[in-house]
Write a protein that binds this DNA or RNA. Structure first.
Lengths: 213, 213, 213, 213
DNA sequence: AATGAATGAGCCTTCATTCAT
DNA sequence: TATGAATGAAGGCTCATTCAT
């Protein structure tokens, strides 16, 4: 694939991402994408053969993006997979800080629903029972749990946190975050509401209140 | 409206509900409903003017149903609005029992996603920023919290539960349930997984383990 | 199906037949048919779901037509299946007359290539290896042979014809007719050329020349 | 035109011939040819400006081939124009042998419909009423008749054949062959069926049976 | 009230052809 | 010469909606 084609595809995916985040998956048409990209009908088909094809490419790009952004928070393309961002810097950083960072990231994602593919993902997977491995939402959820467990586990060791059932706590928090994402994608949710919720969860493991956004 | 028309409409709404729960909102066509109802195209338009019209009628019927169902459990169409079912029976029932009943109901709803309008609701409201009052999802969520607060509050009074932040607990549980619903609608989720999660939440307020499904 | 729909379908098939005979099968588009029928796109799809669907319906109509037309030669819709027309009137008619009638019919079909579906049939079956039973061309060919055999056999009995290998003669004539049809559909062929050919074949079985068109 | 261009064109035509023989004329796209030739879109247009252009070039190449092949039998691409092959070797060969050779060639062509351009030719000429001179099918047919006449004429002179109406016989056989080709291109036809037909025709002129495939 | 044929807009997909590199 | 990205026209299919019966 030539450099030109590559550039075109990146452009298409960027535009398509915006559209998916705005309209979900089901209502997006090839026409929508053609219009947004200022490209010809045939030109689009040269690169992608269907809306689904484009959507999956967008998801793949999300993953690559989040892999890259572990060191530098880019001003655009904040992705849902940034969940673990900030935890692999170095072990010198306290678990509390890492947890705060994690929650801040989640909060940002929850509130900026314009950037979110949640709705699109639900619409897509609800009609495409994909193999577990391919299921973006499940993977995201599982990774989220793993990240939480890692952080809390470290925190318990260092005495920063108190938690008897780390796995339970992680799962619980993951569901709360998922619930927040769902609600945010449908009704508008205030920053305070998110803060309140995260604060509540933190209380369960932090002996002394350390969380301030 | 004659009795006959009324019966026809009820029939249409019942069939439409099934379709919405299976396909969501966006993918449902008038043809789908015509086919399922064994009615003519023109006949359907005599009663409803669009898919949206039908969907809103289905939601309204849901509400009536759940209002009715406090006394009578309808034979089909267990609805998402049944959340509060079981709390207004009588105060003689213990809070624990009511809570167990509530959770059981939630669990059933989470697992039987076939009966659920969650996806349809998300699809509909994500594109129809309705006035807060009309927002079915928000209302459902708020009612869920109120129900939980009421039960837990009673339970604390009677000594069955221990909880310092009832509002926080209720909100937290509501989000967990919402998260479970989301995950269930996208990936398949086992009964054990739901049990585990509910058990985890209960631990937070129940001094002695009382929850068994 | 209501009477109206039935009329529409007949109209569509009549127009479609003209188109197929003019353009063959492969180049015919739904658009062509829509234009010719003065019907809407959707209207056409209400009755037929594809060009193939219409083509097969045209063939079926051909068969019905030819079955009907055994007594009365209609002014339109002369079909390729009229081969046997005129032979089942009564046994009082001499074999020679019946053969003459048969050949006249064949000649008419060969020359009026505008009415012929030969090209369309070839294009269709070359890409749709149908089951032998469904193969219109094969059936037509086989019926043609049977008809010839029957007539010649009668003629031999009555002393009108002389033929030692009736089956061979019938097959040979059938191939000649097929060859004439093919050539006529591609290059223009004169009436004289057809006459000459038929006369040649007749010579093989007729002691005294009886064939005049 | 450089030698390289020449080689490229030959390669294109060879591949195109295969495609035309498989798909006929109408269904062949530039893309089909591009794919088969492992050439670029633009590259193909450098040599040929349309599918029709390529098809005509294929036909022209056929003719050259068959002219050449009177001395050298090409390893592939047995062409329909090989009809006359074998008759211009030398007059020392008996007419019977030459006729047998001719029929064998025809038989091979009829049975190996994969190699045949019949369908493509019909599709092409049916929509392009070409001037008589350019009509490949008519020319082929006429040449076929001439060849037969020549052979039979020699055979009659040498006493090998008996035939009063040589022209009639030749025409008749040509039509039979054409009919066989048509049937073979649409339904599958067995070697026995072809043999039977050729044997029947031969009986008309051969006093003693000499034909064995 | 009810039917279902008909309409036309909208989106999907493919293809011949052009053109900058 | 050669490449392959891009274009736009053409045709396919579906759907909400209307309307004569």
């Amino acid at each position: 694939m030539g450099a030109k084609a590559n550039r075109t595809e990146k452009h298409i995916l960027a535009k398509a991402r915006e559209i998916f985040s705005k309209k979900g998956f089901k209502s997006v048409t090839m026409q929508d994408i053609v219009d947004a990209c200022d490209i010809s009908r045939g030109g689009l088909y040269l690169h992608f053969s269907s809306v689904e094809d484009i959507f999956l490419a967008v998801l793949k790009a999300e993953d690559s993006n989040s892999a890259d952004s572990s060191t530098l928070s880019s001003d655009e393309g904040e992705s849902e997979s940034d969940l673990s961002q900030g935890i692999n810097v170095s072990t010198e950083v306290s678990a509390s800080d890492r947890f705060a960072s994690f929650l801040k990231e989640q909060k940002r994602f929850i509130l900026r629903r314009k950037d979110g593919l949640s709705l699109a993902l639900m619409e897509y997977y609800s009609g495409h029972s994909a193999s577990p491995d391919d299921n973006y939402i499940k993977n995201r959820f599982d990774n989220c749990i793993i990240t939480i467990e890692a952080i809390v586990s470290d925190g318990v060791e260092s005495g920063e946190f108190e938690c008897e059932d780390i796995a339970g706590f992680a799962r619980n928090l993951a569901y709360v975050l998922e619930g927040l994402k769902t609600m945010a994608s449908v009704i508008s949710i205030s920053e305070q509401a998110v803060d309140k919720e995260m604060f509540y969860v933190l209380q369960g493991i932090v002996p002394v209140d350390q969380y301030t956004n």
